[in-house]
């Protein structure tokens, strides 16, 4: 069974048809890329998968079960995590606390037990802290754990978003333009990191990216959107030679290599 299945998905924003009849499916433990020119509807697609907007039409299935009507926090609990194109860290909190927030779901503490300081509360908090630290080491931010998240460099903020998303223990991880604003060296590191994530955490990855080199290197499956519609899909070879894709990109001035 596909990990994620999308059927005839559409989204209308007060007159703007951001997405129209998009159907696709994503295999478990694969890396899929959504590409397309600006405004194609890629982020909108992420927003619907994670419950930020309700779809106007169509359906989204996670391992065969519908996600319709689920709020973003329920979807997070069901195993989908994401990063944001326009970074959304808890910028006044420390790097470490940002990741700890990601551990929210695995902690059973409530107001009462927190005040009473019950042993299990302390224990689970310790476990979460250890995990958070491990994740920071994993993305290479352990050194900055006490820094305010908002003070990190752009590239490190993106890495922190990934660590925070991983802390929710997802089965699917959605990355929205993870390489945006990174220099070539950081991008190379990121490429390795993404591969490592897939292998170590055994999860399914979907990424939106404009950096074609990164897309072609990582993705097993590529889906091309333009003006809210799916215009092509296939492996990197198919996509590079698809005249429709070339046209969509050249039409907007971008170049697909």
């Amino acid at each position: 069974m596909p990990m994620l299945q999308i059927k005839d998905l559409g989204k209308n924003f007060a007159g703007i048809q951001a997405l129209k009849d998009v159907s696709l499916s994503v295999e478990p433990n694969s890396i899929t890329a959504f590409i397309g020119p600006n405004g194609a509807g890629k982020t909108t697609l992420f927003n619907m998968i994670t419950g930020v907007y309700p779809p106007s039409t169509g359906e989204i299935l996670l391992e065969g079960k519908s996600l319709l009507g689920c709020k973003p926090d329920e979807i997070s609990r069901r195993g989908i995590a994401r990063t944001f194109q326009n970074i959304r860290l808890f910028s006044k909190m420390t790097v470490f606390e940002n990741v700890l927030v990601g551990c929210h779901n695995q902690l059973k503490t409530n107001v009462l037990t927190a005040v009473l300081g019950l042993p299990f509360t302390k224990k689970e908090e310790n476990i979460a802290e250890k995990e958070a630290y491990k994740l920071l080491q994993f993305v290479g931010l352990a050194e900055s754990l006490n820094e305010e998240a908002g003070n990190l460099s752009y590239g490190n903020q993106r890495k922190l978003e990934i660590a925070r998303a991983l802390a929710t223990k997802p089965r699917i991880l959605l990355l929205d333009e993870p390489a945006a604003g990174m220099n070539p060296r950081e991008t190379r590191e990121l490429t390795d990191l993404i591969l490592k994530i897939r292998d170590e955490f055994k999860l399914t990855l979907i990424l939106i990216e404009h950096d074609m080199k990164l897309v072609m290197k990582l993705s097993e499956h590529i889906i091309v959107l333009d003006h809210g519609e799916k215009i092509a899909e296939g492996n990197s070879h198919d996509i590079q030679n698809n005249p429709k894709v070339i046209e969509a990109y050249l039409g907007t001035g971008a170049v697909a290599k």
Partner: peptide, 23 residues
Amino acid sequence: SKVGRSWRAVRENEIAAQAMGIN
């Protein structure tokens, strides 16, 4: 505790807090 952390997370960024599973 987790409670205080989720308050601050909600204050800092509601959408991100939700994406972390916070109701």
